[in-house]
């Protein structure tokens, strides 16, 4: 077979005592793909990363990276992958430069040999190369951690919640860096609790409480949403929420920024509904059909 997957996960299960952290999870990540694991805390994302990076053994099923088994071939896998854990894992007492040299040395290489790969990212923190890692801001720590995970030229990169706690603008810049790495041929498995980042991935898996809720391209997932989503606004937003929830034939209504999202099966007559609640005294009501977003998909699949 010519086209080998970068990652293959089959029926993977992990339990901690009575808690099932991963419940028969299966998916694959193609070479050169950015694959996103989208889900909240406690979904099982970190357990999955720890199994794939050979730091944890599964209780059932199998996982492979570059065709190598995560249990039998763990030594080979470790040389081929880069891992950025969710918690800051660099040495706070070492400088920026020392951290990077240390990680390069662990893999028997140096900064100079691989500088071209990390340069677009490292150049942003290089002015602070003598600063201790513990004294860096959150955004700079994140960039250094990414450089350290890349310095041995891994073919597969594992990023566990790299953008958690990072502001919206810096998050966008981080995803631009990942696009650059993909162009270098690196396959990336990345997790995030921010649903708005799903669109930056080639394909995503929605994960919650150890189970995969759906796998597809971001567009494929929203296209598969089989009900209508309406944007609703009016002068009395909290009154509208209660009123819409009491309406039969509506499967969901929840706040969505400045508007509410209303989910209703096909055949729902929005125009008649707006007229009816206006007659009941709701003023300034506007309702229009929009496409579903990833959060709408996630909320619906959670309810099943």
């Amino acid at each position: 077979m010519e086209e080998r997957n970068a990652i293959e996960v089959r029926e993977l299960t992990k339990r901690y005592g009575g808690v099932t952290a991963l419940d028969r999870v299966s998916f694959e990540v193609g070479c050169g793909e950015i694959f996103g694991l989208i889900g909240p805390d406690g979904a099982g994302k970190t357990s999955l990363f720890r199994i794939l990076t050979t730091l944890l053994a599964p209780d059932g099923g199998s996982a492979s990276v570059n065709g190598l088994d995560s249990v039998a071939d763990y030594r080979q896998i470790r040389r081929q992958v880069g891992y950025m854990p969710g918690r800051f894992s660099l040495y706070a007492d070492l400088s920026v430069e020392e951290n990077l040299s240390f990680f390069a040395a662990l893999f028997g290489t140096g900064i100079r040999e691989n500088y071209d790969l990390v340069a677009p990212i490292y150049s942003q923190i290089e002015p602070f190369r003598k600063r201790r890692a513990g004294k860096l801001s959150g955004g700079m720590k994140q960039k250094l951690a990414l450089c350290c995970a890349l310095i041995h030229r891994p073919s597969v990169l594992f990023l566990d919640e790299p953008t958690t706690g990072v502001d919206a603008l810096s998050r966008g810049e981080f995803w631009d860096m990942l696009d650059g790495l993909r162009r270098c041929g690196i396959s990336i498995l990345v997790s995030t609790p921010y649903m708005d980042e799903a669109g930056r991935c080639d394909r995503i898996a929605l994960i919650n409480e150890g189970r995969i809720l759906g796998i597809d391209t971001p567009q494929g997932l929203v296209d598969g949403f089989d009900e209508g989503v309406y944007e609703l606004s009016g002068d009395d937003m909290s009154g509208l929420l209660a009123r819409v929830r009491a309406e039969r034939g509506i499967s969901g209504c929840y706040p969505f920024g400045a508007v509410h999202h209303v989910v209703a099966a096909e055949g729902f007559d929005a125009v008649a509904f707006v007229a009816r609640i206006a007659a009941e005294g709701f003023s300034g009501v506007s309702m229009q059909c929009i496409g579903a977003g990833i959060e709408d998909v996630f909320i619906k699949k959670m309810g099943r």
Partner: peptide, 17 residues
């Protein structure tokens, strides 16, 4: 202080209610 960080979208909304 970031009360809803890492929380699923449904719980996040219930929290705001």
């Amino acid at each position: 202080d970031e009360p809803t960080g890492g929380v699923d979208p449904l719980t996040r909304r219930q929290f705001w209610e």
